[in-house]
Amino acid sequence: MSRVAKKPIALPKGVELNIQADSVAVKGPKGTLTIAKPAGVEIKIEDGQAVLSAADPARIAITGTIRAIVANMVKGVSEGFERKLELVGVGYRASMQGKDLNLSLGYSHPIVFPAPEGITIATPSQTEVVVQGADKQRVGEVAAKIRGFRPPEPYKGKGVKYSDETIIRKEAKKA
């Protein structure tokens, strides 16, 4: 069996794991997340931990994947996920207008990005954007969309980058 699937998932206080025949729901202080449960994967709750097993030997690989997804759901509804972005460039700035993110990224027009349902966007400073939420996949997707408005370029490093991202610089053209 998969090494990942063998590890049990610890359920912190205040987190409920609800297992139906075709879906798995995790409820906690930061919200509720649901996924479809594939056939051939069994989930049981033992001693405050969720244990996954493959009912069918051909479903071992998907069991590890489902275990990782459920573990991320448990972490998301208890602690949440966040992704930090930095704006690098002269005149590049971000601000919040209600639930909309207003970005000035050197274009002739400002970019207005509405925050999706279940995602919180904050701007601690004019050059920082923090995306938070319970669903790891959606937090990463929203951060990638914001980064996609002006990805960092390799010559000066200008653009929207993740805070932990390093931009590999290219040397300028020689005359």
Score class of each variant (00 low, 15 high):
V130E: 02
I69F: 00
I111R: 03
P29N: 05
V139P: 08
A39H: 07
Q126Y: 05
L17M: 04
E79K: 13
P29D: 05
T65Q: 14
F81P: 00
I146W: 09
M73K: 08
F113K: 06
G118T: 10
M1T: 12
L103S: 11
M96S: 01
E141Y: 06
R169A: 15
V112D: 03
D100Q: 01
K44D: 05
P124L: 03
E141W: 04
V26N: 03
N18P: 00
E117I: 11
E141D: 03
V70I: 15
A172P: 07
E79D: 13
K44H: 08
A21G: 00
I69P: 02
P124I: 05
K161V: 13
K161A: 13
E117G: 02
G133Q: 04
V112N: 02
Y162F: 15
T127V: 04
A122L: 15
T63D: 02
E165F: 00
A55C: 09
Q97W: 08
R93L: 03
V112T: 10
V142K: 10
G80D: 00
V77Q: 08
Y162C: 06
I19Q: 06
R67C: 10
V129K: 03
A5H: 09
T32F: 00
P8N: 09
Y107F: 13
L105C: 11
A25M: 12
D22G: 11
Q97T: 12
Q97L: 13
R93C: 01
Y162A: 14
G64A: 05
K30V: 04
G40C: 05
K174Q: 14
Y155S: 09
L85T: 09
D56N: 14
I119H: 06
I62D: 03
V131E: 03
K75I: 00
A36L: 06
E42C: 01
S104G: 01
G140D: 15
A172W: 08
A172H: 11
A122V: 09
T123I: 11
R3C: 02
P12M: 03
K13Q: 13
K145Q: 15
P110R: 15
A94W: 02
V15E: 07
Q126T: 07
H109A: 08
V26C: 03
E165K: 05
A36V: 10
R67S: 13
K173Q: 14
